[in-house]
Design a protein around this nucleic acid. Structure first.
Lengths: 259, 259
DNA sequence: CGTAGCCTTGAGATGCATCAAGCATTGTGG
DNA sequence: CCACAATGCTTGATGCATCTCAAGGCTACG
């Protein structure tokens, strides 16, 4: 269920942070995530330009931060392996998770606006990202319209995704939110080539709650109720969707547009 | 309090829709909203390129839609005069307002992703927008790095704004949400050169509720409570902020990053 | 002046949060 | 390899914030 880990050799010199740099080079053209990532829709032959950009891989161990809220923005990050949450902590301690990111998805788009990251990016498991220095990306996009266009699409998709989340937070009740969350995850795993009906939740119930605007107990109860209705089966972090159609129907007729 | 309406002559032929096209030409360079809009940060002398793009103005009467969810995406729209809400209606009747837009702000960024608009754009009052045909915009940006960069910033800012809204929906209680909403509006009016402490709400209580994820009665009660605490004074749609610092303090120490 | 839409206020219902306890799973050190 | 601690998860009882339902008042506009 997890055809992860591609060949990896150098561990580079261990830094004293939890971040570990790998300078080895693979090409976007050869990447299995190509179609989902920034290069989506760009002819394979043209990808060398993009490859020139992706100078570096970076590993992030579970629980470590790729960047923090307020950090100077330098790069976007494409997830190769693993998963992340994007979150902010308010001074009163309340936490909000603005999204979970899976392989092929992009981190850091919010940083372009003010040249600072607006959220923390925390690895949910040992992960690896491609580093895309932003000034270089803009420069290359300048001379390469398809990349330009693709970049706009990726940003716009993030806007649409967030609109869907706002709608969810604004109009759905607890059980609907949890169902929407699971349906969304399912679609994304499917797109990645994994099973869409059986997968492992990389995040805790509490993180799900911080994403959905619910308390951990409420998330737990919603999962229990969905199980009782036999729409899903949960055992710890392992989740199986037994009745996809009915699960989707829980959302009312509403959306979960995509992403 | 409303230095609106610039010179306007031709009304063009009235269409049978509520939309009214004005082909008259003003320049971005001469527009008082310049700094807030797409051209922000672009030297005045260079604006001719952008002017070449803005081929058309369009009027939208109060209550009319500039575009609908599902419409084919062709253009972005910069608001010149008036205000809009962006919203979706679920089949079960529940409505979500994803944002309110004021002069100088951009409508339609969500359409880039899938070449369809994801929401309805409804004029809250008689309004006028600049039409920016998207393919042209991309083409010009291609050859004009500052515009390119500015466009990215505008999109990223929208992402950040939506993150702030999600946070609000997810962690704030009713009174905090309403306070955050008012603080946000205040800042935006201020930036437009209007008073930040006294303004007219262009939207109904219900629309505010659909934006904040609250019922109309709850919005009303929150406003009443904020009045009782003498942070604001409300009379119908007219609103005055009497104690900006205290109003901001209602949000906890949290954010309202900007818009 | 009258009507329609919008807003406010009250009373009662409900869904989620909170508080509290116990169980399960994971990881660690003996 | 086992025991135990720590963390995460579930479940129950209770309280509170917001929703729902209902009525009446205000404002704008024809």
């Amino acid at each position: 269920m997890t055809p992860k880990d591609e060949a990896e050799s150098g561990d580079a010199a261990a830094t004293d942070t939890a971040l570990d740099y790998a300078l080895l080079k693979d090409t976007c053209a050869s990447c299995s995530l190509r179609e989902l990532c920034v290069p989506g829709g760009i002819p394979k032959a043209e990808l060398e330009r993009l490859d020139a950009l992706v100078a570096m891989r970076q590993r992030v161990t579970r629980g470590a931060m790729l960047y923090r809220e307020g950090d100077r923005f330098r790069s976007l990050y494409a997830i190769r392996v693993g998963s992340f949450k994007s979150c902010t902590t308010r001074e009163d301690g309340r936490v909000h998770v603005s999204g979970f990111q899976l392989p092929g998805e992009l981190l850091g788009l919010d940083g372009v606006a003010f040249e600072r990251h607006g959220v923390d990016a925390v690895a949910l498991e040992d992960s690896e990202v491609c580093v895309l220095p932003y000034p270089d990306l803009e420069r290359i996009a300048q001379n390469f319209p398809p990349l330009q266009h693709q970049l706009h699409k990726v940003m716009s998709r993030e806007i649409v995704r967030e609109q869907d989340v706002m709608m969810m937070l604004s109009v759905m009740r607890a059980e609907e939110r949890v169902a929407a969350f699971l349906v969304g995850l399912s679609e994304r795993y499917l797109r990645l080539g994994y099973s869409g009906t059986e997968f492992v939740l990389r995040m805790t119930r509490e993180e799900i709650g911080d994403y959905l605007g619910l308390k951990i107990e409420t998330v737990s109860r919603a999962l229990t109720r969905l199980s009782e209705q036999e729409l899903i089966a949960v055992r710890g972090k392992h989740l199986r969707i037994d009745n996809p159609a009915a699960l989707r129907a829980v959302l009312g007729t509403a959306v979960v547009r995509r992403e």
